[in-house]
Structure formats: C-alpha cells, structure tokens
Design a binder for these strands. Structure first.
Lengths: 265, 265
DNA sequence: ACAAAAGTGTTCTATGTACACCCATGT
DNA sequence: ACATGGGTGTACATAGAACACTTTTGT
C-alpha cells in the first residue's frame, strides 16, 4: 500500500481550438477525402467490477441475444460515436445505458484489435475498467442483449469461472475475445491495488467507511486474507498521515468494539 | 434459466477460427451492413526512445511536410490496415518503414480519441512505445514527412524540450495531441523501469553488457544519478540470482578495472 | 462472563540509500 | 605512481509479514 502514484497531465483537445494557419491549409482540409482509408469500427467495452453482499468480487456479464456469439456472455459495450464524444465519454454513456449510473470510476485498460476478433467486420475495442459499489447498480438489458447479471469471479491458474445463484459460466462461454479482456482487467486491478487508490471506488460510502470495509475490498481483489493490524498500519501511514483520508469524529457501532470512521478526499 | 446452461458448455470458439453454428447465423452475417455506424480512422503512433552517445534519452520526431500541422513535429505513425493486421503488427510495420528495423520491443501505451484531435476527421490513435538501441536505427523520412531526427529529451515540471545539434523544439511545436502522448510515454517508462525489464531493450548488445552500461540506461530514463554499488547489489539479487541474467566468463577491458560481462536471457 | 470485532505493540526480515574503502587495469 | 572505473562491505531507515495481546462493545 505504498504510493507510487503515476499521474499524467493531459490537455484536452476540442474542435474549436484548431486554427487553420493559412489559406493553403483551408483548401487542403476541404478537399480531404476521409473515405480513402479502410476504417474499422471502434467500440468501447467495459469490465464492470463490484462487490456482492458477501464481499466477493463480481463482474457484470450480458447474455447476447443476437448474432454473432448469440447465447454467449459478454461484457457491455457499444460503438463509439466518432467525433462526437471522447472514448471515456463513450464508455460512460454505455455504462449509463447499461446500469443507469453516472459519475463512475472509469479507467482505460487496453485496446484490442486482432483481425477476426469480430466475425462481422474489423472491430477495434477500447476496453475500460469500471469500479462501482453494488448499491448504485441498476442493471438493465441492452439493445440486442437478453439478460444482464452479476457473477462472482473465480480466477486462478486453472482459469476463470463465473457463478451466481442460477448459473455457472466458464471462460469458454464468453463472446469475442472477452476472456482476454477480463483476464487483463483482473490482473491489472490486482497489480494496481497496492499502490493506487482504486479500492476506495468500491466503498459503499467514501465519506464514511471503516478500515475493515476497505480491507475486505482488498481481500476480494487479491483473493487472499490480509492481516488487519498490518493493513491498519499501512493505511494510517499512506493515507491518513498524508491527508488523503481524514479520521472522522464518529464511530460505527455494531458487534464488538466500535470502529472509527474515515473519509476519503 | 437453467435450460440455457447446456448450450454454453459445448462451445469451442476462438478469435482466429470463427465457425458459423447455424444457417440463421450465416444469413445474419451476410446481411450485416458495416457502413451503418460512423467509423473513425484508426492509426498507430509510436514513441521511439533510444540513447545517444552521451547516454541521454532521445526520441524520434518527424517534421510534418503536409497539412494538417505542416511544419510541426510529430511522432511517427500511420493508418491501421483494418482486418489485415493486428495493432501491434501495424506498429511494427510503421516502425520498419520509418527506421528500417524489425524485432523491436513494442508496448501498447494508451489510446487517444478526443474529438477534434485531428482536424480532418475523427481519428483514434493507439499509441505504442518502442525501445531501440541507437545502433539499429536507420532513420528515413516517411511519405508525407520531410525530415526525421533524433532529439534529446528534457522533461521536468517546466515542461518538455527537445534538442539536437541544430534544433530546439518546445512542446508547443508538436502536432496533434502528441505532447500528451509523449508525456505519458515518458512517465510510464520512468514508472516501469524499477520493476520491469524494459531497460535491457536499450542495450547495444543484450548478450554482452556490463552493469555500468545498464546503470546508464536507468540514469537516462530516471534523469538522475544512481549509486553504482547499490545498483549492482539490486541487479545481482533481482536478475543474476533468479537466472534472468547470467554472468559470462569474460571481461570488458578499458580504462580502470575490467568489468564483468553479463547476458540477458 | 463471554464472544466478537477493533486496535496496539513487538519481532524478524527484506529492501533502499548513503558512503567508506579496496582492486585491477592503462598510462 | 596515479588516475580511472569496477567491485566489496558496513550502517541506518523504512516497509512488509507474522503474531501476541489489549480494549470496547453487545448479549
């Protein structure tokens, strides 16, 4: 839990800021024929993680109602409205359509573009990871999708299996190359959890949480038990001491000793 | 919902060999109209790093001979031949065209797709980072580019400046959003260098190198001096002890005490 | 009184960093 | 002999993991 945070300063581009520097350039832009290059479709696909009531890491999968891969399970996604929105905006829009939530933590994962990954036509998919507290999810079915459900993830050397009360899905039941996308998302999440603030985005309430709650999120992601005293020590050193988290003048009552509440800034 | 389960388990689909499972699906694929979605152009852009003779981190920039951003400097790139090649293959192809080298370390960096980043038409750019020993570079000009040159990078809180014997380029002289791409590439490289094997790809000869040579690469990337005894200790522990690097029965003669040679596997 | 969960403290080991010093070569 | 770069050893601070123990609540 040390903080090697890598922050990128990125400037934002928009249409209005580009100024033609000459008449020659204006002419060029008018004559430019966009159709002369082969254009693949571009989609955004989103790996949505959440924690269930038993603090297991869950993922949202959609049963495809249409071809290709009809009946297979996929992560939600959709076409980017090129030129109208940024990639992240496209991901946020899809997320909103699928789960009815806004203001979600979204992080670009990787871009997949192997030929033949979609049997219809060349499709390049920009994959995003979303971390969402379950309370905020309001799952809906998409346009050409039947059925959206949350599944508990089991991922070890044997492979991935997704289960819930009624269904068991193996990684071979996933559409397209979504197996690779999900595997990469889990791996990245596990690697990032120790030095990035990702875990806070899975808290029910960032403004009032206990150290135990945060520990359970870490345990779910890393899929192993964590020693609470050591976790507390690192938490206080890395977050409270630096001011990224402040201790509230409030406790959470329940079984056992009341727990201090903290607020993530 | 249990009735669905049986059909999932029988699948053996993968990317490369998609087999239509039914006549219904065949029909669907034939009728599918790819043109109904707005398709952005997709390019790959490559941040090429190398070390110069004085062990400074260098980057390859191209002076744009055509509009847009004529006269501005850009990183090399080009359109993806959708459906014919993977994104990494496209990057490798562009790299080969530009610098005449193959078998280069290439790593996907990030995908940029803000509206208006290219004034002509919506363009989504998948950025790659390449690490190349200078000896292998054979720099050429591209199709609509004038001039390709290596520049020493200076990057601190003040911003980025690129210099060589004849030119000084500020980050404002860069085309498109290449400023953001390059900044991200440098930041990522710096963050990765401590726990990934990236540095070895900048060695003149991976099969015969000294600890000092490797240290100089790390210094160039991190832009600070490293204590040699400590670097050696970590190198022996992390690479030699684990077998990722083997000590050769050979020394490099020169000024001072001869240096042991190592081989990266 | 007891269970349950929060919270404190100790110990051991590994790592990062600073730095003093010795070693083998060319000139 | 001395400059030059390679290589060894010591010392201290901090981080991570294991674990014994205490505190405060509800029942």
């Amino acid at each position: 839990m040390n903080n090697k945070k890598a922050s990128y300063t990125s400037s934002t581009y928009n249409n209005s800021s580009y100024i033609c520097s000459s008449e020659e350039e204006k002419e060029f832009l008018e004559k430019y024929d966009a159709s002369k290059y082969t254009r693949p479709s571009v989609t955004v696909d989103i790996v949505i993680f959440t924690l269930d009531e038993e603090d297991n890491l869950n993922i949202l999968l959609i049963n495809r109602g249409g071809y290709p891969y009809k009946g297979f399970w996929a992560i939600p996604g959709g076409f980017v409205e090129a030129g109208k929105e940024s990639l992240e905006q496209a991901a946020a829009r899809e997320l909103k359509e699928e789960t009815n939530i806004s203001n979600v933590y979204l992080k670009q994962l990787y871009t997949f573009g192997n030929p033949g990954r979609d049997p219809r036509t060349p499709v390049i998919s920009v994959a995003y990871t979303a971390l969402v507290p379950k309370e905020m999810l309001d799952i809906k079915a998409g346009d050409d999708a039947d059925d959206a459900q949350l599944f508990k993830i089991k991922y070890d050397i044997e492979g991935m299996i997704f289960t819930n009360e009624s269904l068991t899905i193996t990684e071979d039941n996933l559409a397209f190359d979504h197996r690779d996308i999900i595997k990469m998302a889990i791996t990245r999440l596990r690697n990032r959890i120790d030095y990035e603030d990702d875990a806070f985005n899975l808290l029910k309430n960032k403004n009032e949480f206990t150290i135990s709650e945060l520990k359970k999120i870490h345990e779910a992601i890393k899929n192993k038990n964590i020693d609470l005293p050591n976790f507390r020590k690192a938490f206080l050193r890395d977050y409270v001491e630096s001011g990224k988290v402040i201790e509230l003048d409030k406790n959470l009552e329940g079984k056992g000793k009341p727990a201090k509440l903290y607020k993530y800034i």
